[in-house]
Design a protein around this nucleic acid. Structure first.
Length: 950
RNA sequence: GCGGGAGUGGUGUAACGGCAGCCACGCCAGACUUAGGAUCUGGUGCCUUCGGGCGUGCGGGUUCGAAUCCCGCCUCCCGCACCA
């Protein structure tokens, strides 16, 4: 073997040396325009900025497999490209380190979660460094750092001390609400005043309750997802569709409990409409739209025995067809409406075998609360419910409508009550069939319609009386007309509703951010939260002996949450002076959910050491501010997995908008452009018993797969320990070096595409880098082959075409294209400049610059062997000379009736007439045209000629 | 059920509406070698009577021209799902 060949051993040597040098020289220190990190800013002051970010990892003990770095490498290549192309690039990395896995590990081992978490962070950080990523090491942090979560608590305080003003459609400080309430210029929001009282009549404590009910972060007793198996409550987003916990797969029950909530629903409309201003994939936007779930329709009020039941419907046009009402079992009016006894002749199906309506209702409510969502599904969609023993009056027809409760109506969506129209709604039809309720069709189904609920379109029928006629109208016209009637008679109005619910924000866990909240220990205000003053932040997480929340039997729905912090008794009670003298308080013992820390970390990268502010407004404006009026601003490229499509991304957008409203940031959105990287999947193999065998030891023989000679079955799926198919970056680096690993990982497809892993295919990337090396370095002597000679025209054309295509691939995140064009150029140079001949310096240098973002260590080494002393990371990326992008002559296809019959060479600037003449001159084409009638000639300069024969 | 996306060689993929399969893996052959999981060179969609013919899931349409645009099917992937 030649002494100076680019082998894996040499690659490793080069890589380690350059990684040390980058660190020592601070090559990837990104200067801020002002403040602590501004040293060196003059070097980049005239550059445009680019802020690139990855979704930061959770430091689990398992470390990284080859799938994890895909996105990190995508941003790294982009970051390096943009730096070379004249941007001031910010590409930081941090760790999302609070959360369940670390806590569970702590519970098992008795070791503090901080210890294991920090060890895991160190391990992953070393793995990332070995990949050669260009993160600014000064900007890294973890969400568990007190210097970070101090500001998470500070932001919570901002949200707590704010309310949403529906008139201006934005959050405002709560003090402004109090001022307006005191001045009488604003009425408290609906439902926040005690019955029959006004603001001026209230005591101080009563006023505090009213104000608290307006806050964006508020305590609320409501049905929540209680998971006895985990000993904690969960957000809707953390519960799977079959009613189990996303983590641990335990049953989840709906239980009324007092918990912290965040009023994200106030932002539903803005979260929805601002999606249009973002550069995100359509599918991702659609997922958020579906989650927000906007529906337009009407509220309609139905009188029921002295009360009013308000329903939400998207089909007010079918009001003539409403034949009964259904309330959710948890609806607040159920108790009041329930009749004392069953009327004569009550249908036994409606009474469910109970002696009185109250008994039937109580039994049904109990059953509904205990039934997990899973049970509901297991029973299919069979409709159940009971009658309350009362009827409502249809405001339009005056008809009596029996009022039921049933669990197919959900509390928390719309008004938690519906008008049932069995003729046009499948669920209502099923219920009506089950309970023998009448059906009135109000939309004419087509002649061949074979029964059931008709949900299609058609002219209105059976919809007329002395008050109103909708007959013959189409859906839109009928909705408009009936809505007008509802408003005129006071029976309802048009409205919009959302599927999005407020965000359940407290958890009964140890390993999370403590709330900066205390309560008085006695008095009538003892249940009212008080925010800990800014000066007392952070509220540090205390040490405890036992990290586990009290858990219960999976199915113990009646159990009560007992957070671990409630056992830290010397922490939970505290004497503070909050302005009115020292007083004893008890601390909030819930902690924040895992999502809190990731809601704002993009802002903290701008200067994680700032102890005065959560972010310097000047830095925020520079790195994230809008580029022109109306621009949303935000991170320029955010890359991460699609699994965060609704949870993290919705929460982070919400927090960012609150901070925007309160004037703390100038950007309206956190992430301007977002790309979901694909997944790397892998083959796994099972033996005859169905057990997984080590994938690395399986060999293919004639289309069959064998493990130690034994026939095995191939499966395709995730990479995982249990499937015995994990490949780690460390293994790849040992086998090939980090640069080969990077190039291979980037060469297998566009960044957003999923792809299968195939370790042995990486030799292709290895060969490419070896050829690049050989073009620049003489393998025998180790000397650079570059010489000051002019490249020939073919080489210049190959070079400049490659430059153009590589730039395109880099900006569109299609690194596979960039690598393919680099390969073509390299292959050209390999044959144009065989060993022993000189390589034009301008071409060799350009090649090194082209590969630098992809294989940075190799590029640094070659750049220095070419005589440069500075880092290639800061060299200028080549720009294509347009002169070399066009050929003097081009080969043009000649078609006859759309089929290619010949190639002719013509000058590149030949016009249509010249093209046609050249084509006709071709012998073969002349043969085709002879004796035929040419009906039409299409000649596209530079592309082709097509003769259409008659 | 509703919504979104995708179907191209044995594999990963590439093609401003303009010569389908760039670049790789694999495979075949050769060179250099004591050897090769090294390196280099060439070949590799299918059929063929060697003229050519057929090929981008299937069927239609628009167009001089369709992998690409439109319509209808089929298959696969993802998300949501009793949301009134």
């Amino acid at each position: 073997m030649p002494p100076h060949r680019y082998t894996p051993a040499l690659a490793n040597e080069i890589e380690l040396a350059w990684q040390d040098r980058w660190e020592a020289e601070g090559t990837f220190h990104t200067p801020n325009p002002v403040g602590r990190l501004s040293e060196g800013f003059d070097r980049v002051a005239d550059r445009p900025k680019a802020f690139l970010m990855d979704m930061f990892p959770y430091p689990s003990g398992a470390g990284l497999h080859v799938g994890h770095p895909l996105g990190y490498l995508g941003t790294d290549v982009t970051s390096r490209f943009l730096r070379m192309d004249g941007h001031n690039v910010l590409h930081p990395m941090g760790y999302d380190a609070f959360g369940l896995p670390a806590e569970q590990f702590a519970v098992q081992t008795g070791q503090h979660p901080r210890v294991t978490t920090e060890a895991n962070i160190a391990a992953i950080s070393a793995q990332l460094r070995r990949l050669g990523v260009d993160h600014d090491p000064r900007r890294t942090f973890a969400t568990i750092d007190p210097g970070y979560y101090k500001w998470t608590q500070w932001i919570f305080r901002q949200i707590f001390e704010a309310w949403f003003d529906p008139e201006t459609d934005r959050a405002r400080p709560i003090s402004e609400l109090v001022t307006e309430l005191d001045a009488g210029t604003r009425e408290p929001a609906e439902g926040t005043l005690p019955e029959g009282r006004t603001w001026v009549q209230l005591s101080d404590v009563e006023r505090r309750r009213v104000v608290d009910a307006h806050r964006l972060a508020y305590l609320h007793q409501a049905p929540v997802n209680w998971c006895p198996g985990l000993g904690t409550v969960l957000s809707n987003e953390e519960v799977t569709p079959d009613g189990r916990s996303e983590r641990g797969n335990f049953p989840v029950f709906r239980r009324p409990l007092t918990q912290w909530m965040m009023r994200i629903t106030s932002y539903a409309e803005r979260l929805l409409t601002d999606l249009d201003r973002l550069d995100w994939s359509d599918s991702l936007k659609q997922m958020q739209r579906n989650w927000i779930g906007r529906s337009t329709g009407a509220r309609v009020r139905f009188p029921v025995s002295g009360e009013t039941v308000e329903v939400f419907t998207t089909r007010p046009d079918t009001l003539f067809g409403a034949t009964y009402l259904v309330l959710a079992p948890e609806h607040p009016l159920v108790g009041e409406l329930t009749a004392d006894r069953w009327p004569e002749g009550t249908d036994p199906r409606w009474a469910a075998g109970a002696d009185t309506p109250a008994e039937a209702v109580a039994a049904y409510q109990r059953q509904a609360s205990r039934r997990s969502e899973l049970d509901r599904q297991a029973e299919g969609r069979e409709k159940t419910g009971v009658w309350l023993g009362v009827t409502a009056r249809n405001p339009l027809t005056g008809a009596d409508l029996p009022v039921f409760i049933a669990d197919y109506v959900l509390t928390g969506y719309g008004t938690g009550a519906i008008m049932a129209v069995p003729g046009e709604d499948a669920r209502d039809w099923d219920f009506a069939s089950e309970f023998g309720l009448p059906v009135v069709r109000t939309v004419q189904p087509p002649a061949d319609f074979d029964g059931g609920a008709y949900t299609g379109t058609g002219p209105m029928i059976n919809s007329s009386n002395e008050q109103l006629s909708l007959d013959g109208l189409d859906k839109a016209a009928a909705i408009a007309k009936v809505t007008e009637w509802l408003v005129a008679t006071g029976a309802g109005e048009a409205t919009t509703t959302y599927k999005l619910r407020d965000w359940l924000f407290s958890r009964q866990r140890y390993w999370g951010e403590p709330f900066p909240v205390v309560y008085a220990t006695d008095g009538e205000d003892a249940d009212l939260p008080i925010a800990v003053p800014e000066s007392m932040l952070p509220v540090l997480l205390p040490d405890v002996d036992d990290y586990s929340p009290t858990t219960f039997a999976d199915d113990d729905a009646d159990s009560q949450p007992e957070p671990p912090l409630s056992r830290a008794t010397e922490w939970t009670t505290v004497e503070l002076d909050l302005g009115d003298g020292p007083r004893r308080y008890r601390r909030e013992t819930n902690t924040m959910p895992n999502w809190a820390g990731s809601c704002w970390y993009h802002l903290r990268y701008l200067d994680p050491g700032d102890d005065e502010r959560f972010v310097d407004p000047e830095l925020e404006a520079y790195w994230m501010g809008p580029r022109e009026p109306g621009d949303v601003g935000g991170v320029d490229l955010y890359v991460g997995g699609v699994e965060h499509a609704v949870l993290h991304l919705l929460y982070a957008r919400f927090w960012h908008k609150v901070l925007f409203d309160l004037g703390h940031v100038s950007s309206e959105e956190p992430f301007r452009r977002l790309v979901n990287q694909g997944y790397i999947s892998a083959f796994a193999y099972t033996d005859a018993r169905g057990f997984h065998v080590p994938a690395a030891e399986v060999v293919e023989e004639g289309g069959q797969f064998r493990y130690h000679g034994e026939l095995v079955t191939r499966e395709y799926g995730k990479m995982g320990k249990s499937l015995k198919n994990v490949v780690t970056p460390d293994e790849m680096i040992a086998m090939f070096g980090a640069d080969t690993f990077r190039v291979y990982e980037m060469s297998t497809g566009p960044l957003d595409q999923s792809r299968p892993w195939e370790t042995k295919a990486a030799v292709g990337s290895q060969r490419l880098l070896q050829r690049v090396w050989r073009v620049v370095v003489d393998e025998e002597s180790g000397a650079a082959r570059a010489a000051d000679v002019e490249p020939d025209d073919d080489t210049s054309r190959a070079l400049h075409r490659a430059i153009e295509a590589v730039r395109d691939g880099m900006t569109t995140l299609r690194f596979n294209i960039a690598i393919a064009r680099i390969t073509e150029l390299t292959n050209h140079l390999t044959s144009a400049c065989p060993p022993g001949t000189p390589v034009p310096r301008s071409v060799a240098e350009a090649l090194v610059l082209l590969v630098a973002p992809l294989a940075p260590h190799l590029a640094e080494e070659l750049w220095s062997r070419l005589g440069h002393t500075g880092s290639v990371a800061w060299a200028s990326f080549p720009v294509a000379d347009p002169q070399w992008l066009v050929d003097d002559t081009v080969e043009v296809a000649v078609q006859v009736n759309g089929k290619v019959r010949a190639q002719v060479a013509v000058p590149a600037d030949a016009d249509a007439a010249a093209l046609e003449a050249a084509a006709r001159a071709d012998e073969r084409i002349a043969g085709y045209l002879e004796g035929a009638t040419v009906r039409r000639v299409v000649a596209v300069p530079g592309r082709l000629v097509n003769f259409v024969l008659g």
